[in-house]
Design a protein around this nucleic acid. Structure first.
Length: 568
RNA sequence: GCCCCAGUAGCUCAGUGGACAGAGCACCGGACUUCUAAUCCGAUGGUCGCAGGUUCGAAUCCUGCCUGGGGUGCCA
């Protein structure tokens, strides 16, 4: 259980006891929460319960004509019943009715030893309790290299997966490959034409095809493997063949690009497999039996309005040309996720231009008898690429960077991930390449990594002197910056908990910056190593704190998919 | 038209019911024979888009409006 929950429990217990003993009248208590006040004089933890219950208290007292209590008086009554506990050294009740609590420095200092003893496990929560969750992300159409916008999707999705897998969930990362439909046919045809062109055949690529130079590269890869042996194929034979070959090339390239960002998928799921293994026919049968399908304008429609009371809008299931639409694939796909594979929870990470699609997902789930709460769609806004404040046009012809690989090659994965994660999902990002590359104080990425490098350097130097972390005399840790650093480290589970509850990974980089700042203040104020043997005990205690900081920073960087450098 | 998101310090952004609204950058003034100065300390800086409402308490919740972005039935 997290520290704030434990402290809130103390308040709850004390209040119930006060009721039982007759100090306070009986009524239904609200759930108690505590928060970290901004001002140090208001304590390490604060609780506003007296203000929240003053009305209930006085109404109950009035009923038996027993006078009135002020919030401060209520607070004092509660505090008198506070159970013995190791955390709190001092508790104050102040106007207008806050209970301010101060952590025991001894208990706080002892946590440094706990962190060193248990490592990152000290911070891990069992939020998931073994639940199976799938995070589906990126899932860009496999018709070319990843656009830089995909990097934000990758950073968000992968970080959510990391948050979950470190806190009690069994996580699968999945990439959904849209490997059927009109776009793929045109892609296959373009590749086929490029291949023919490489062999001197004068053909032109399709009108709505893929003009990018990368298609010529793909054709060269086909040529390298097959030579001219495919030239004899007819268009009817060649297009499916090249669609398949192209898909293999692109998929390998996507995996490669994503690996550059420390992103690895457990499963690449083929859309067309849903049609080959009968899933699509099966869900169509379910919907038909329930009377959820009807024909209009030569198309088959899904009666979505039946399941979404606020909407009168239905969805095209099978288009008038006989081809299932994307919504039909989504129905089959989600049936596969929830029923066939039985995930407890599914998270889809989508760009904000799919917002409408996201709003229509619950209808299909209800129609399939699946609890809509088992699906969460994380929507994020787009990224504008800039260089020195000027927008980089998303145009191949400009010659400017646009693919994810090109940006990563220039700014590096760590900086890209950190900067892409720093904004809330709903916020648009202006990603300035110049700023991202800058290895100076303007760039917060390096401030955080630098703190880890410093910590590592101290531990190295100490080891060379024969000094190791030792928790025998941790009560020597009394300096305000030492206690502040410990208090900040203890905040990590709260940050993680919040990030998971809201699927908002941007809390991690912000906290990382705060933690690095808090460490650097300690570093500035407190010398760890010393030439004087008389300081050895304090050095060992501080080394424990430094080691705990290293563990914490490394875990935090790991959650963000970043490296924790030992030196810079 | 309708739906979604955003509007907080000069800039980039945190903060989704608690106390006097925060950070980074920029700007100004200090600190270096450093366990890595990619540093630290201090100062300046805000009618939280606007107007109502709910509440002991609102940047946060509700209603309306303004501005910007996105979406809006056979593309995905």
């Amino acid at each position: 259980m997290m520290l704030p929950d434990q402290i809130a429990d103390l308040i709850t217990t004390a209040t119930r006891k006060a009721q039982k003993k007759g100090d306070l009248p009986r009524f239904q208590l609200p759930s108690v929460s505590v928060n970290r006040p901004k001002r140090p004089e208001q304590g390490d933890w604060s609780c506003a319960l007296p203000l929240q219950i003053v009305r209930d208290v006085n109404e109950a007292l009035k009923a038996r004509d027993a006078g009135k209590l002020s919030p401060v008086q209520i607070g004092e009554i509660i505090v008198r019943r506070l159970p013995d506990n190791p955390y709190l050294e001092r508790v104050e009740v102040v106007k207008p009715g806050f209970i301010n609590m101060f952590l025991s420095p001894e208990w706080l200092a002892a946590q440094a030893g706990e962190i060193v003893a248990r490592g990152a496990d000290y911070y891990r929560l069992d939020k998931g309790q073994g639940k199976r969750v799938q995070v589906e992300f990126v899932s860009a159409n496999p018709t070319g290299p990843l656009h830089f916008g995909g990097a934000r999707n990758a950073a968000i999705g992968d970080t959510i997966a990391r948050l979950l897998e470190n806190n009690g969930y069994r996580v699968q990362r999945e990439y959904y490959i849209n490997d059927r439909g009109t776009q793929m046919d045109i892609f296959g045809e373009t590749l086929w034409r490029r291949y023919q062109q490489l062999h001197g055949i004068e053909v032109s690529i399709p009108e709505q095809g893929y003009p990018g130079a990368y298609m010529i590269e793909y054709a060269r890869k086909v040529q390298a493997q097959y030579g001219d042996s495919l030239l004899s194929l007819s268009d009817e034979e060649a297009i499916p063949k090249f669609r398949k070959l192209g898909l293999e090339i692109v998929t390998a390239e996507l995996a490669d690009d994503l690996a550059q960002m420390q992103v690895h998928f457990d499963n690449w799921f083929s859309e067309s497999s849903l049609y080959e293994d009968g899933t699509f026919d099966h869900v169509a049968a379910i919907l038909r039996e329930n009377g959820d399908l009807y024909v209009k304008d030569d198309a088959v429609w899904f009666r979505a309005s039946k399941y979404l009371p606020k909407s009168d809008r239905d969805e095209v299931f099978i288009r008038s040309n006989g081809e299932p639409g994307y919504y039909a694939s989504d129905v089959a796909y989600h049936y596969n996720k929830f029923v066939t594979r039985g995930f407890d929870w599914v998270i889809n990470v989508w760009a904000v231009d799919h917002q409408n699609q996201a709003a229509r997902m619950p209808a299909m789930l209800k129609a399939l008898g699946i609890d809509p709460d088992r699906l969460t769609i994380v929507l994020y806004d787009l990224v504008t690429l800039k260089r020195g404040g000027k927008e980089v046009k998303i145009s191949k012809r400009s010659g400017e960077l646009i693919t994810m690989r090109e940006v990563l090659d220039e700014v590096g994965s760590d900086a890209a991930r950190f900067l892409l994660l720093s904004h809330s999902n709903e916020a648009r990002i202006d990603f300035d390449i110049e700023l991202a590359v800058a290895q100076n104080s303007e760039n917060p990425v390096y401030y955080v990594q630098y703190a880890h490098a410093r910590v590592s350097s101290i531990l190295r130097k100490a080891a060379a002197q024969g000094l190791e972390p030792d928790d025998a005399e941790l009560n020597l840790l009394t300096h305000p910056t030492e206690l502040a650093l410990l208090h900040k480290m203890l905040q990590l589970p709260e940050v993680v908990n919040d990030a998971i509850d809201r699927l908002a990974p941007h809390h991690l980089p912000h906290y990382a910056l705060e933690l690095a700042k808090t460490f650097t203040k300690f570093y500035d104020a407190c010398r760890v190593l010393s030439d004087d043997p008389a300081d050895a005990a304090l050095s060992r205690a501080r080394l424990t704190l430094v080691k705990a900081t290293q563990i914490t920073l490394a875990y935090l960087l790991h959650l963000m998919g970043m490296n924790a450098p030992e030196s810079m």
